[in-house]
């Protein structure tokens, strides 16, 4: 990683009262890669992504995105997909699209139109009438329509059926800018492992593994999903 490009995390800890959500995390995530943040529920994935996206401002340690702590500058270059719907119910798809177009200079209207068409969503659809899967597709379309430098996707396939998961993953791959960094958090390893360059295993707020996907597969002689099941077995 050169000139502070990408994400650098040093000694990051975050607690919620007596509960340690993240403990002394050190990570260097360069651009040009798709990195999987893999861990069971409650392992600290969402907390880490929220710190990177600027939603959690109080933490110990140092976090930089392209050399900046999470702030206004990083919000301009980070495209964040939360793990739950975050648009008001009264909005239509076209309202949310207009908001993103107004707010982000890197928003690509043509890409958004193509993605909506692929997901069979109409701009006139109101969010409150959409199913959970439709909302996830719509939000993913918005986030991937930006030509951002950093993409943070929190459980993008958590609430959709297996067939839709493939479509979503193809969409992520097709719209991934090779010069950007994509950090995808999930516990559905089998579905995402084929698109990953690097994997990070996070357990109880600690990083237990951070390696290129291929080297893990070569060393262990099994898929990432199998390694994950072994590491996280109860």
């Amino acid at each position: 990683m050169t000139n502070g490009e990408g994400i650098a995390i040093r000694g990051l800890s975050k607690n919620y009262g007596k509960t340690m959500a993240l403990e002394m995390i050190d990570l260097t995530l360069p651009k040009g890669k798709i990195i999987g943040l893999l861990g069971p529920n409650g392992s600290g994935k969402t907390t880490l992504l929220k710190i990177l996206s600027g939603l959690l401002m109080n933490y110990d340690g140092r976090v930089t995105i392209n050399g900046h702590s999470p702030d206004l500058h990083t919000k301009r270059i980070v495209s964040y997909l939360p793990d739950s719907p975050y648009f008001a119910d009264w909005m239509k798809i076209k309202d949310a699209t207009r908001l993103f177009k107004d707010m982000y200079p890197d928003f690509r209207t043509d890409v958004m139109a193509a993605l909506l068409s692929r997901f069979e969503l109409s701009p006139k659809m109101r969010i409150k009438t959409m199913s959970k899967g439709m909302k996830e597709k719509f939000q993913l379309a918005l986030v991937m329509s930006r030509k951002a430098e950093i993409y943070l996707l929190d459980e993008p396939i958590g609430g959709v059926d297996p067939a839709a998961r493939d479509v979503i993953l193809q969409t992520i791959l097709a719209n991934f800018n090779p010069e950007s960094l994509l950090l995808i958090s999930t516990h559905l390893i089998q579905d995402v492992e084929k698109i990953l360059d690097e994997v990070i295993f996070i357990k109880n707020g600690r990083i237990v593994l951070h390696e290129p996907r291929n080297s893990v597969i070569e060393r262990e002689g099994k898929s990432i999903d199998d390694v994950f099941r072994e590491v996280f077995k109860c």
């Binding site: 996206s53 206004l72 919000k75 301009r76 964040y80 939360p82 707010m103």
Partner: peptide, 18 residues
């Protein structure tokens, strides 16, 4: 309340505004 307590907070506070 919705802007800070609800899911909408994740939108408002990730927008590139000061």
């Amino acid at each position: 309340e919705k802007s800070i307590f609800g899911p909408q907070a994740q939108l408002d506070f990730t927008l590139p505004i000061s």
